[in-house]
């Protein structure tokens, strides 16, 4: 088990380093279209082959990893922080505050996000650089993705609200704010961590779907989401199975995250 964890950690570090130094490692620029060899098979020049426009899939995968591995956890962190605050306060305070907060999360989850995102796109200027579109995309994901986590956190906090140690802390004269921050939140860490971890792949996939609304990472920047959309072309995947690499990498990275950052470490 320990060996497995170490391997997973080593793999993650390798992926992060590869993504970080993508600029040095890639054989060719990620956006360069080799128009004479679209849909190429893996070769010495194109390690994973090329996409429909002749762009090197290996380069795109490395750059896409850089974007997704950095921004999806960042968005997830943002969502988890908001969820911790909303859910923690609601569950701990209880009463009308909890009802309002739960109503808020219900509303947030039942909102027609599709239309809200369309509205958001309508408000944004058309001439966004790909980098700006990228940041906005993940910021939106973070801001909109907290509701489900907040409910879980709220339920957890509600359980802690009536616990003896909260009573004991109160009896010691600790203020509500400090009890929430110092006593309740540390106990929610495993739940928060789980929510954080669950959100990462969800956000990576959501980003892919946002592309359909003109909100995702825009051309020519690659992202895992964008690369996964490439799998819709099944006949191309059949022709070149190396195209499954983004999916494989996503699965492996997410499992490695699970292995390395085990929940037990957060709950003594």
């Amino acid at each position: 088990m320990k060996l497995l964890r170490r391997t997973a950690a080593a793999f993650l570090i390798a992926v992060f380093i590869a993504a970080l130094f993508a600029g040095v490692l890639v054989p060719v620029p990620y956006a360069k279209q080799f128009r004479d060899s679209p849909n190429a098979m893996p070769s010495r020049i194109h390690l994973l082959g090329t996409d429909e426009l002749g762009r090197d899939l290996f380069s795109r995968l490395l750059y896409g990893s850089r974007i997704s591995l950095l921004l999806a956890p960042a968005a997830s962190l943002l969502a988890t922080i908001i969820a911790a605050l909303v859910g923690g306060v609601a569950g701990y305070a209880g009463g009308w505050l909890e009802r309002i907060a739960l109503g808020g999360t219900d509303l947030a989850m039942s909102l027609p996000w599709l239309f809200l995102l369309l509205a958001a796109r309508a408000v944004l200027p058309l001439n966004l650089s790909p980098a700006a579109s990228l940041l906005i995309t993940f910021a939106l994901l973070g801001f909109f993705g907290w509701a489900a986590s907040a409910r879980v956190i709220c339920a957890g906090a509600r359980g802690l609200r009536d616990s003896d140690f909260v009573l004991q802390a109160k009896a010691c004269g600790c203020s509500s704010r400090r009890v929430l921050l110092q006593q309740v939140l540390p106990n929610l860490r495993p739940a928060l961590f789980a929510q954080f971890l669950i959100s990462i792949p969800v956000f990576i996939l959501t980003e892919a779907n946002l592309g359909i609304l003109g909100l995702g990472v825009s051309e020519p920047l690659p992202s895992w989401g964008g690369l996964l959309r490439g799998l819709e072309n099944w006949s191309a995947v059949q022709a070149n199975p190396a195209r499954l690499a983004p999916l494989l990498l996503l699965l492996v990275v997410v499992s490695c995250f699970q292995l390395v950052l085990r929940q037990e470490d957060f709950a003594p």
């Binding site: 140690f165 009896a171 010691c172 004269g173 110092q182």
Partner: peptide
């Protein structure tokens, strides 16, 4: 007044201690 002039000791010591915090941290909080 609570904690400074009025102290409270609860029945079940293990549940009255926060499982996620070190003893030192809890005493420091108090």
């Amino acid at each position: 007044v609570r904690g400074r002039e009025l102290g409270l000791v609860l029945q079940s010591p293990l549940s009255a201690l926060n499982p996620a915090l070190r003893i030192g941290t809890q005493l420091e909080e108090a």
